[in-house]
Amino acid sequence: MSRLPRGFGRFLPPWLKLNNELSQKIAVFDAMTIEREELDRDISLLRKQQADTEDRLAEDLAEDEFQSILSGQQVMEQSYTDLENICKQQIGCIVDKLVAKYERIVYLDSDLRKLKQSIENGVAAANAQVTAAASM
């Protein structure tokens, strides 16, 4: 099995009896897979929020510069500093959330790979036991 789909337990041969440990591992794998999908959705939403925020900030900056030019005022260095602080605050908050989600994904993917291997080994062992018992 190269890739375990969610609901892995349904794809096992019906005659194969799973022990509690293997059944629990499959349930944990399913739950972790669902969490992984939720993290992917969260990241998509955060990326959209980041893009929208960046667009809004760019529009605000352009509008401020345009209004300054219309009124004959020079764009002052202070307004750029203020804008930089606003960007760091608003975009930084989103980036911090993204970092946390990506960090969780890294650890979750590692755990999923280990659990997948453990389940595959458990299924192979269960199949071997059934085959050995049938040949006696």
Rank of each mutant, 00 (worst) to 15 (best):
L70K: 08
L45C: 15
Q49I: 00
V75P: 00
L46K: 02
T53Y: 08
V75Y: 00
T53R: 04
D52A: 09
E65D: 05
Q67R: 03
E54D: 10
Q74F: 10
S71R: 14
L45V: 15
E59I: 09
D52M: 09
Q74Y: 14
Q78K: 13
Q49N: 12
E77Y: 10
K48V: 04
D52I: 01
A51L: 12
D64Q: 07
Q67F: 01
D55V: 09
R47L: 13
K48C: 08
Q50G: 14
A58E: 05
R56M: 08
E65W: 01
K48W: 10
E59F: 10
Y80T: 04
Q67H: 12
Q74C: 12
E63S: 07
I69Y: 03
G72P: 00
D64T: 10
K48Y: 08
S68E: 04
Q50S: 13
E63H: 05
Q50I: 10
D64A: 11
Q78N: 06
D55W: 04
Y80R: 02
Q49T: 09
I69M: 09
R47I: 14
L70M: 11
Q78Y: 08
Y80D: 06
L61Q: 08
G72C: 05
E63P: 00
I69L: 07
L46F: 15
R56P: 03
A51M: 13
Q73R: 15
F66P: 00
L46A: 05
E65T: 03
A58V: 11
T53A: 11
F66H: 06
A58G: 12
K48D: 09
E63R: 06
S79Y: 05
Q50K: 14
A62S: 07
D60Y: 04
R56K: 13
E65R: 01
Q49F: 00
Q67V: 12
S79C: 10
E65V: 04
Q73E: 07
S79V: 04
E77M: 10
L70C: 10
E63T: 04
A51C: 13
Q49V: 05
Q78H: 10
D52G: 09
Q67L: 12
E54T: 05
I69N: 06
E59G: 03
I69G: 05
Q74N: 15
E77C: 01
